[in-house]
Design a protein around this nucleic acid. Structure first.
Length: 316
DNA sequence: AATCCGGGGCC
DNA sequence: GGCCCAGGATT
């Protein structure tokens, strides 16, 4: 959960997740959709699918692997997480390099090359950080202390160098560069994308939902039916061809949602049909169950626009 | 090496 | 409105 996600954002998801899946065995045995539903809103949904697959592998082999190499082979476990688990759970003498450790290391050694190109050099330097004999006997504590140093003192902006336990050995502080490092290559602008979605309900208040494709953005998540997302705006006539019904729809507003590499402008329409027909393009969902679906944040914004009272009742 | 993959907190 | 977050997989 913590991959590219702040502790603040994760905390409540983590509590709910462990309440529902207290052991590897229960997670391994759970339906994938239950896992995705509890992940909905956290983002990077491949993490949820990988974690589920991971649980099934670990459960089948009867326990966790303990070496970095074996951990690294598990789905969703990369260079960072394999070292984090090995160091923190099994006290292996390795240094996991996350965003915090990258920053601390770039500063301690005054590495001026910009990310992401500097990553290999930073990783090599990070492996030499632990020079204290007592700390070398406690790889788990050392790793977590590094995270905490980066999170509370060696922060991205306005680092608190004056109270830093490593201030005397920090090359960036000596050079007056601490706040400038690590440098980063400039990021690409997010191009706009436009789409239309339709919130269709029947007389009983049920919703008509679809499932997104298994690949691409929001893969496998629940969504309201609508147009594809493209670089140009949609006319009403164009969009109507992607509507799930020929009933009249009314525009209720626009949702703007920023993804990693694009900004989505979604026009939300609302309509009411007598009864849903049989249609493999979607499924009906009782209002009580809508918030239990794997609805990503952008779709929750659409729901809030089209059915504000429903969202207020089930607000988390 | 570059791109794709979410969402939110904070400045 | 941009930056960053206990990154990983794919191409």
């Amino acid at each position: 959960m913590l991959q590219q996600t702040t502790v603040t954002a994760v905390r409540s998801y983590y509590a709910r997740f462990l309440a529902r899946f207290p052991t590897i065995t229960t997670l391994a045995a759970a339906p994938r959709d239950d896992v995705l539903a509890l992940w909905a809103g956290l983002g990077y949904y491949s993490r949820a699918r990988n974690l589920h697959a991971c649980a099934q592998i670990v459960a089948a082999r009867g326990g966790f692997p303990k070496s970095v190499g074996e951990l690294r082979a598990l789905p969703g476990i990369g260079e960072y997480t394999s070292r984090a688990v090995a160091a923190i759970a099994f006290n292996e003498p390795v240094v996991p390099v996350d965003g915090n450790v990258e920053r601390v290391t770039a500063r301690v050694f005054a590495i001026e090359e910009a990310l992401p190109g500097a990553r290999p050099a930073i990783a090599r330097a990070a492996a030499t950080l632990n020079t204290d004999p007592e700390a070398q006997a406690r790889p788990s504590a050392f790793a977590q202390a590094l995270f905490d140093l980066g999170a509370t003192i060696c922060t991205p902006r306005n680092p608190a160098c004056g109270i830093c336990p490593w201030q005397d050995g920090c090359a960036a502080r000596k050079a007056g560069l601490a706040a400038e490092l690590p440098r980063r290559a400039k990021r690409m602008a997010k191009p706009p994308r436009y789409g239309v979605c339709f919130v269709l309900r029947d007389q009983k208040g049920n919703f008509w939902l679809t499932r997104r494709p298994e690949t691409g953005l929001l893969a496998g998540m629940t969504a309201f039916p609508g147009t594809p997302w493209r670089a140009t705006r949609w006319t009403v006539e164009e969009a109507a061809r992607h509507a799930p019904s020929t009933v009249d729809f009314e525009l209720v507003g626009d949702v703007v949602h920023v993804f990693t590499h694009l900004t989505l402008h979604l026009s939300v329409y609302r309509g009411i049909i007598n009864t849903f027909g049989q249609n493999s393009d979607g499924f009906a969902c009782h209002p009580d169950n809508v918030m239990r679906q794997a609805l990503p944040s952008v779709m929750r914004k659409c729901l809030r626009l089209a059915a504000p009272d429903l969202c207020k009742e089930t607000e988390q």
